[in-house]
Simulated assay, not measured.
Amino acid sequence: MTPVLDLVGIFVFALSGALEGVRKRFDAVGIAVLAFFTAVGGGIVRDLFIGVQPAALRDTGYLLVPIAAAVIAFFWHRQVERAMPGVLVFDAAGLGLFCAVGTSKALYYGLAPMHAVFLGVCSAVGGGVIRDVLSGEKPTLLYDRELYAVPAMLGSTMMAVLYALGVRGFAATLSSAVVAFAFRILAMRYRWRAPLARGLTARE
């Protein structure tokens, strides 16, 4: 992932975290904390599992971008909320990029394909889980009714398969990201939902 795409994905995720802080009536510090961990929490978890220093703790951009998103949400949250359909498209793009790059990085450091897929999903949805826990919500990873983790899993799996076939670099990353992105967009468009246990009905 290029630094620009990386920071764009971080910004969108940070914005979703900051908006959640606004909805929960957090103060400025709480909004900033939620923005930061939503944006980079998944990557930090991935890097800790791999055993390398988290990129979010080396590059100041990983700190400044979430702060910028928090400031925007703090002052202009009503305007951002009105633009949410567009923001969700960028969020889906960030999901695709993060799951592909997370899987690729895990494979590069020698993890087995299944473990790499797991860490790819962690990269994509880990920040959202931290956001939900900090804000007192049920983590979407455990209640994937909007098909958020499933697209990340598909993108991560495709990345692992392409890596095994010798297809690597930008082509593999883009292909895997597009698969996750397209599935997420279709899930939002047609309101696809993950199945519940047999005999249970949805409460939405």
Rank of each mutant, 00 (worst) to 15 (best):
residue 98 F to A: 11
residue 113 P to M: 10
residue 56 A to V: 10
residue 13 F to G: 03
residue 143 Y to D: 15
residue 154 L to C: 14
residue 95 L to C: 04
residue 144 D to C: 03
residue 93 A to S: 07
residue 181 F to W: 13
residue 161 V to C: 12
residue 83 A to W: 11
residue 50 I to A: 07
residue 19 L to P: 08
residue 51 G to R: 08
residue 178 V to Y: 07
residue 153 M to H: 02
residue 154 L to A: 15
residue 126 G to P: 08
residue 28 A to D: 07
residue 166 G to C: 12
residue 41 G to K: 08
residue 156 S to N: 04
residue 105 K to D: 09
residue 134 L to S: 03
residue 105 K to M: 12
residue 177 A to G: 15
residue 84 M to W: 04
residue 179 V to T: 11
residue 122 C to P: 01
residue 42 G to Q: 01
residue 84 M to V: 13
residue 36 F to H: 08
residue 106 A to M: 12
residue 201 T to Y: 01
residue 98 F to Q: 07
residue 194 A to T: 15
residue 37 F to Q: 02
residue 150 V to R: 01
residue 27 D to W: 01
residue 177 A to N: 12
residue 30 G to V: 02
residue 61 G to H: 14
residue 188 M to H: 14
residue 201 T to A: 15
residue 38 T to P: 10
residue 18 A to T: 08
residue 12 V to C: 05
residue 120 G to P: 11
residue 126 G to Y: 02
residue 128 G to T: 07
residue 117 V to A: 03
residue 142 L to D: 05
residue 194 A to Y: 11
residue 171 A to Y: 08
residue 157 T to I: 15
residue 70 A to W: 01
residue 180 A to S: 15
residue 186 L to S: 11
residue 104 S to D: 14
residue 3 P to W: 09
residue 5 L to V: 12
residue 18 A to P: 11
residue 79 Q to Y: 05
residue 174 L to E: 09
residue 189 R to T: 09
residue 90 F to I: 13
residue 160 A to C: 12
residue 127 G to Q: 01
residue 113 P to I: 13
residue 72 I to L: 15
residue 147 L to M: 14
residue 181 F to S: 10
residue 53 Q to G: 10
residue 21 G to R: 07
residue 142 L to E: 06
residue 149 A to I: 00
residue 144 D to S: 03
residue 111 L to Q: 07
residue 129 V to T: 13
residue 22 V to M: 13
residue 24 K to N: 09
residue 173 T to P: 00
residue 118 F to M: 11
residue 169 G to V: 13
residue 91 D to H: 06
residue 42 G to K: 01
residue 151 P to V: 04
residue 152 A to E: 06
residue 115 H to A: 15
residue 164 A to F: 05
residue 44 I to V: 14
residue 174 L to C: 12
residue 128 G to P: 01
residue 110 G to A: 14
residue 87 V to E: 00
residue 37 F to Y: 03
residue 46 R to D: 08
residue 134 L to P: 00
residue 31 I to Q: 08
residue 66 P to Y: 10
residue 158 M to K: 02
residue 132 D to W: 03
residue 36 F to G: 00
residue 52 V to Q: 13
residue 31 I to N: 05
residue 18 A to F: 02
residue 35 A to K: 03
residue 16 S to Y: 04
residue 101 V to D: 10
residue 136 G to P: 09
residue 81 E to Q: 11
residue 153 M to G: 14
residue 89 V to S: 01
residue 140 T to A: 09
residue 89 V to C: 01
residue 30 G to M: 05
residue 93 A to D: 00
residue 62 Y to A: 10
residue 69 A to L: 03
residue 110 G to D: 11
residue 158 M to Q: 12
residue 118 F to N: 00
residue 58 R to W: 07
residue 177 A to I: 02
residue 189 R to G: 03
residue 178 V to L: 15
residue 91 D to S: 10
residue 54 P to H: 10
residue 171 A to G: 05
residue 52 V to R: 14
residue 195 P to N: 11
residue 164 A to P: 05
residue 172 A to Q: 04
